[in-house]
Design a protein around this nucleic acid. Structure first.
Length: 93
DNA sequence: TTTCTCACA
DNA sequence: TGTGAGCA
């Protein structure tokens, strides 16, 4: 399933400029319709967006999210969780 | 992050 | 007239 930027913007309550910003940061890689240059967000982009909002809720910066999502994400997933856990414990202490 | 302008259907 | 892109 593909979505246009307006639909994605609505379902995540994120402005289209923010989506463009995420794209610039390298977090999202929507395809382009050559005909009109529209951005097309597929399932993978939607999944990545979920991850983005999740990590933002965990106080990760967009640049960090971009880095972890672009480099062997699945292999390092547990590592990122541990990193988050340690940051939580630090915050509690 | 928000706002403004231009292009397209 | 509404929606998307790009810029400041």
């Amino acid at each position: 399933m593909n979505y246009k930027i307006g639909e994605v913007s609505k379902m995540f309550n994120i402005s289209k400029e923010m989506l463009r910003y995420y794209e610039k940061k390298g977090v999202l890689h929507p395809k382009r319709i050559d005909e009109n240059n529209y951005r097309v967000y597929d399932e993978m982009d939607i999944f990545l967006l979920f991850e983005i909002v999740q990590y933002q809720a965990m106080n990760f910066h967009v640049t960090d999210i971009a880095e972890m999502l672009s480099n062997n994400y699945m292999e390092n997933y547990a590592g990122y969780l541990e990193k988050y856990e340690s940051s939580l414990r630090k915050e509690i202490a």
